[in-house]
């Protein structure tokens, strides 16, 4: 029986394994080879092994660490902001959405726009001479902040990212909020719980796994941000808005530094794997 079951598992999982090997395993292997090689666009098919020099180059590059810092900061702040706003909207607007569910479609609209287009849109919206935001600020206050200068660009990007992706967090929280059984709330009310107690002691604990997943997904998305940042500010004055993805892109295509670019992406892969592994272990332990 066991043998037959193993065979069935093997057959059923084979397409997925083959898919992963072809589309993830092969590129990963090529990346590892390139990261250990001296390679250029002319020698893509004949790289020469050069040990760990690419890794040394990356790890001693100040721009790499600045990009890591930008990505960490950006990922953390946007994930927290999106989840906080999404949570508040989900809780306080839930009664409204239950009566008028079509409003959900409106809230979801920002998710329908490609991030690069969002970047392009805000490039126009925030431009001092063609954008509506600076236009009205000038008209009402006689001046407008420089949204994309070196001082403000980071926070402008945070706001743009938050405006686009808060609906995603909202949707998760709204579904989790609605999934709380009615009898649980009813029982709490009969026990005399206040609205605050209900939220703090019943609803938030029941929504905690969703909150954790939403925070994690939004952090990952923020950490690897590329499109809208690249379109809005490029890597920013002095590289001030260079995320890790932009660092890898620029090293690869703009500077032709293929080995270091791939080494940086391998380092990123290792770090991501370590974090995911730790989270998985933690969840498994908690489940036991």
């Amino acid at each position: 029986m066991d043998t037959r079951r193993h065979l069935e598992w093997g057959v059923l999982s084979a397409p997925m394994v083959i898919f992963l090997l072809l589309f993830l395993g092969f590129p990963a292997l090529v990346n590892i080879v390139y990261s250990l090689s001296s390679v250029s666009f002319q020698t893509l098919r004949s790289p020469e092994l050069s040990g760990f020099s690419n890794y040394v180059t990356v790890l001693t590059d100040g721009n790499f660490w600045r990009a890591i810092w930008f990505s960490l900061r950006f990922g953390t702040i946007t994930a927290l902001a999106e989840c906080l706003i999404g949570f508040v909207l989900a809780i306080f607007l839930a009664p409204l959405f239950e009566k008028r569910s079509w409003l959900l479609a409106i809230i979801m609209l920002p998710l329908m726009v490609a991030p690069a287009l969002v970047g392009l849109m805000y490039r126009l919206v925030l431009h001092e001479f063609v954008g509506p935001v600076p236009h009205y600020l000038w008209a009402w206050f006689g001046s407008a902040p420089a949204f994309l200068n070196a001082t403000n660009a980071f926070w402008t990007l945070v706001v743009v990212e938050t405006l686009q992706w808060t609906p995603f967090a909202f949707l998760l929280f709204y579904m989790a909020y609605r999934a709380i059984p009615f009898d649980v709330r009813e029982a709490a009310q009969m026990d005399g719980s206040s609205a605050w107690d209900m939220l703090w002691r019943i609803e938030i604990p029941l929504m905690a796994p969703t909150i954790a997943i939403a925070l994690f997904i939004r952090f990952i998305d923020g950490f690897r941000v590329f499109d809208n940042v690249y379109v809005l500010t490029g890597s920013g004055p002095g590289g001030s808005t260079r995320s890790l993805s932009i660092y890898v892109y620029e090293a690869f295509f703009r500077q032709g530094e293929i080995g270091p670019a791939v080494a940086a992406s391998v380092l990123l892969f290792i770090a991501s794997f370590a974090v995911l592994f730790a989270i998985n272990q933690g969840l498994a332990r908690r489940a036991r």
Binding site: R123, L148, A153
Partner: peptide
């Protein structure tokens, strides 16, 4: 020059 010039290229 506009304070946002640090994000300007040809079209801006």
């Amino acid at each position: 020059t506009p304070a946002d010039s640090t994000s300007y290229e040809f079209p801006e």
